[in-house]
Design a protein around this nucleic acid. Sequence first.
DNA 1: TCACTGACGGGTG
DNA 2: CCACCCGCCAGTG
Length: 113
Amino acid sequence: MDRASFYEQVYQVVALIPKGRVTSYGAIAQYLGTKSSSRMVGYAMNGAVNNHPKIPAHRVVNRNGLLTGKFHFAYPAQMEELLAKEGIKVTNDQIIDFKKYYWDPNLELDLNR
DNA sequence: TCACTGACGGGTG
DNA sequence: CCACCCGCCAGTG
């Protein structure tokens, strides 16, 4: 686990998010054991878009289900479009029924870890 | 080298 | 319920 860099670990988790589901930066940080460094997760995502284009960064939002990182995509509306494509409705940068789509790695991956 | 800046989150008043 | 503050730590000027 400590072999891979923090960023690599973040990418791993994000890559495992099921289609049509979302999670939060904090949840990932918590899963990696650095819950206080949720900021770094978001920071890592910034690099993900450039270094790992296939990472579904649009499935990661803040704990309110708000698309705070939309401005980091090719174009702001892309994040919303990608989510809508997976069946997740977004209004005014806010995911509808966020809890319903929420996917917590601590709960979903713990068993398979 | 120092200071500032964040795709965040929890705690406090 | 809202506003503000602090911790976290890599990258940038």
